[in-house]
Design a protein around this nucleic acid. Structure first.
Lengths: 188, 188
DNA sequence: CGCTAACCGGACAACAGTGTCCGGATGTCT
DNA sequence: AGACATCCGGACACTGTTGTCCGGTTAGCG
């Protein structure tokens, strides 16, 4: 029997489960209280001590990288699709993440300031670059749009989210903002 | 002799000068280190003790209100101009403030969260409402733009600023963003 | 000239978040 | 079963910020 229902989270065998619990709690807490939520709150929400959290993830950035790595992987998987509309799907998911997990964006800001040499900030632009030309060739997107423009619009969306009071208002405001921007983004 | 060159900043007569020094220091520090800079840093930069700062301004918001009140007054003065292009001047100044003193925007966010009943957040929309229709009638601005749209675009500009590494990059990014948005904002 | 009221300055307590450390619990292997 | 290596938990020291407090200074006025 592998690990059916453990009664404790101690001992050598519990490490992977604890790691998983920390990641899940971190995503929850980041979404609820923002990227700068105290790490102690994450440990508490995961039901582990702070020592455990710091052993698995020595810094907030290590934790955030691990938490959001799968989002990045998902975006890159979308970008790897051969379809002409891969860019549109990528964009749609980016907007979704920006609205629902704005800590995702704040992680990039933190990474850029704390570890300027990391390349994590290049992965999203790379995915955009890989998909945008195809969508433009297929007439799905305004042909004059550059990769930098797309990133800039994503930063604008973040601004709308960051100045919203709550998730509901953020969603609605972003919806309006994208409607406003549609003439720029869509095919002319 | 009124107050030619005081050698000390103590005594009853020094209060107004100290207040002024604190306001100037606050604007400086807010611009340099962001809205959440420690109040002790502001006191130090003003050359006064923390007690003085707290007596004049019991909370960060009180200080920020006082610091940015004159910016608001300036914007309202622009909005009071009878010219058709009052809106354009207002908008240009709003963008300038958003870029160069983004703490101005963060103060509104703080006020909205801390004192939801304050009306300070309504003053900018009111100025926009007072000037936008005239500019539209004169054909200076896209006629389909609403007041809410203008505020939304301002929030987008803030997003570009908030995701910039430094003031120089912010200025450049906002410039590109506004160029991108021009087809939406300008007369069609 | 001296008294008084107002005000300044920096020390200080309170508090929150970070990161560390070690006693104690647990699974594994022999 | 027993010993060991691993890992957990929460207390703790540390740091940085907030807000308060009181001794000491200053201007104004009789």
């Amino acid at each position: 029997m592998p690990t059916p229902s453990r009664t404790s989270n101690r001992g050598p065998a519990a490490a992977p489960e604890n790691r998983r619990a920390i990641l899940d709690a971190a995503r929850r807490v980041f979404a609820d209280r923002g990227y700068h939520a105290p790490l102690s709150a994450i440990a508490q929400s995961a039901g582990v001590g702070q020592g455990v959290l710091y052993r698995h993830f020595p810094s907030r950035l290590d934790l955030a990288f691990a938490v959001f790595e799968e989002h990045l992987a998902e975006l890159e998987a979308i970008a790897a699709l051969p379809d002409d509309d891969a860019f549109l799907r990528l964009w749609s998911r980016v907007v979704e993440l920006t609205v629902e997990e704005s800590a995702f964006v704040e992680m990039f800001l933190d990474a850029r300031r704390t570890l300027p040499e990391t390349d994590i900030g290049e992965r999203l632009p790379a995915s955009v670059a890989a998909t945008l030309p195809r969508a433009q060739a297929a007439g799905l997107v305004n042909a004059r749009l550059t990769v930098a423009d797309v990133i800039l619009v994503q930063r604008m969306v973040y601004g709308v989210v960051a100045t919203s009071l709550d998730a509901g208002q953020a969603k609605e405001s972003v919806h309006r903002a994208l409607a406003l921007l549609r003439p720029l983004l869509g095919p002319e």
